[in-house]
Measured scan of single mutants.
Amino acid sequence: KELVSALYDYQEKSPREVTMKKGDILTLLNSTNKDWWKVEVNGRQGFVPAAYVKKL
């Protein structure tokens, strides 16, 4: 599985998104959309802005 690192804090703005803190390591589930990537963090799945994470 592919991992990404959070470059910035992000506070979810809808139920489809997830909150992350800078430095968090997230499991990348889907990166086909260039703007929003689906990740899993702390057992929750949702979307984060692609520009806020980088692949490890």
Results as ranks from 00 to 15, higher is better:
1 K>T: 13
2 E>F: 13
3 L>P: 04
3 L>D: 04
3 L>E: 08
3 L>F: 14
4 V>M: 08
5 S>R: 15
5 S>D: 04
7 L>P: 01
7 L>G: 03
11 Q>H: 14
11 Q>V: 15
12 E>W: 07
12 E>V: 06
12 E>F: 07
13 K>V: 09
13 K>L: 10
13 K>A: 11
14 S>T: 12
14 S>W: 06
15 P>K: 10
15 P>I: 10
16 R>Y: 14
16 R>M: 13
17 E>F: 07
17 E>Y: 06
18 V>Y: 04
18 V>C: 10
19 T>N: 07
19 T>P: 07
19 T>I: 03
20 M>R: 00
20 M>F: 11
20 M>V: 10
21 K>Q: 10
21 K>L: 08
22 K>T: 08
22 K>V: 09
23 G>Y: 06
24 D>R: 03
24 D>I: 04
25 I>P: 03
26 L>Y: 10
26 L>F: 07
27 T>Y: 14
27 T>F: 13
27 T>K: 12
28 L>Y: 02
29 L>I: 14
29 L>V: 11
30 N>L: 10
30 N>E: 15
31 S>K: 09
32 T>Y: 10
32 T>M: 11
33 N>A: 09
34 K>N: 12
34 K>F: 09
35 D>L: 14
36 W>C: 08
36 W>D: 01
37 W>P: 01
38 K>M: 15
38 K>W: 15
38 K>E: 15
39 V>W: 01
40 E>C: 12
40 E>G: 05
40 E>L: 08
41 V>N: 11
41 V>H: 14
41 V>P: 01
41 V>L: 15
43 G>N: 08
44 R>Q: 08
44 R>E: 05
44 R>C: 06
44 R>Y: 06
45 Q>T: 14
45 Q>G: 06
45 Q>M: 11
47 F>E: 04
48 V>G: 01
48 V>T: 02
48 V>D: 01
48 V>P: 01
49 P>H: 02
52 Y>H: 07
52 Y>T: 07
53 V>M: 06
53 V>G: 00
53 V>N: 00
53 V>E: 01
53 V>F: 05
54 K>Y: 12
54 K>R: 13
54 K>G: 11
54 K>E: 13
55 K>I: 14
55 K>T: 10
55 K>M: 13
55 K>E: 07
55 K>Y: 12
55 K>V: 13
56 L>Y: 11
